[in-house]
Write a protein that binds this DNA or RNA. Structure first.
Lengths: 197, 197
DNA sequence: GCATAAAACTTGACAATGTAAAGATTATGC
DNA sequence: GCATAATCTTTACATTGTCAAGTTTTATGC
């Protein structure tokens, strides 16, 4: 049993990262504050110096993943912005992210106090989660030359996102079975709904 | 403090029902075996006569809800089977069920060892969850006169379901915001993807 | 530098929970 | 009626979240 160092000098972040590791390995249900503390080699009450309670640590973990997710999406967006295959690539990236880490899907969207998805077409984007600011913008661009009403445009915005999100949800559910794996189908599936306007 | 009856003679079902009540009221996180036992006015270890552990009670609760869901869907299906608006009504029913009980959505689809959704077009439906047997059948009927390949038909089957499921997922997330409520948009949204073949 | 305060961590305690074991009570088959 | 099984209670214990008090390290003012 190695000697403990009193001051970690970055315990807060280590708790978050080890916490996420544990979730990835054994799922959210198996996670406890004390296990995270133990994984960081500190006493069971140490986390309370950095987080008000368990819920706050979990939210910090969510925020951390949320940022990974956000960064990933923004990279994809940077490449395919204003291109005709934007939606396809956006959707593929969105779904693949959760296919690689299925645990993250429920983790992000279940409690999800940190993610705010504002698809209100008339509303600003002050508190909106970054990638969706761009998503909204891109969809509106795609629909710019159509003669739809604002409400109809919003419907399409929701529909397209709902579809992608729904596929991600299916792809991360273990009890949904198909002939082939998702990886083969992904492109075809998204293309189905990728209409020309 | 009223006297306890020793034999409830249907404690098993009462545990399931009270458990679901408690989930509906305060969410899954707030639920404990002991609280359910207390709600049934039995000792905290009584549930162990009927369930191996907490997880088994939860699975029984899931199964119970799953059956409600299934029955509801089958009623709708019975009415709209083979009609052109089948998909629309199926989708509306699917989404509304979870709009009324948002807690059920994650409850059913998170662990979900009891629901088996088999959308494999070549595979039989032995263990498939009942409503999806009919769903598959109906979609295949709709696509009967098209010149699609089997794989393409399966893609559409997944896509249509994924879309409905995705909308349900969005509709039950508290952090998704729109100008109007879902109830107004529902029909329009589903119609977007309800193509004629 | 040094006293003092603040921050980071430990220890010990407590209540709530899941679960197991052993005992009490009721039902059931013969 | 009696043995046995099923159902429930009681007791006990390990795990967990949380708090309070104490300890150790770091920061701050002089």
């Amino acid at each position: 049993m190695e000697k403990r160092i009193y001051h970690h000098k970055d315990l807060k972040n280590e708790l978050i990262e080890k916490g996420i590791e544990l979730v990835s390995e054994s799922g959210l249900n198996q996670l406890s504050l004390r296990k995270v503390a133990q994984a960081c080699n500190v006493s069971h009450a140490a986390p309370y110096s950095h987080f008000k309670n368990k819920e706050e640590l979990f939210e910090a973990m969510q925020l951390f993943i949320t940022e990974q997710f956000s960064n990933m999406l923004e990279e994809v967006i940077a490449v395919y912005k204003d291109q005709p295959n934007f939606l396809l690539e956006f959707g593929k990236a969105y779904i693949r992210f959760f296919m690689e880490k299925p645990q993250y899907f429920t983790f992000l969207f279940q409690h999800g106090k940190n993610i705010l998805i504002n698809l209100d077409i008339r509303d600003g984007n002050e508190k909106n989660y970054k990638p969706f600011v761009i998503y909204k913008e891109q969809i509106l661009n795609m629909l710019a030359h159509s003669d739809m009403s604002l409400d109809q445009k919003e419907d399409w915005m929701i529909a397209l996102f709902g579809y992608i999100h729904g596929l991600a949800s299916l792809a991360t559910m273990e009890n949904v079975h198909y002939t082939m794996g998702w990886e083969n189908k992904l492109e075809d599936l998204i293309s189905i709904f990728t209409v020309d306007f």
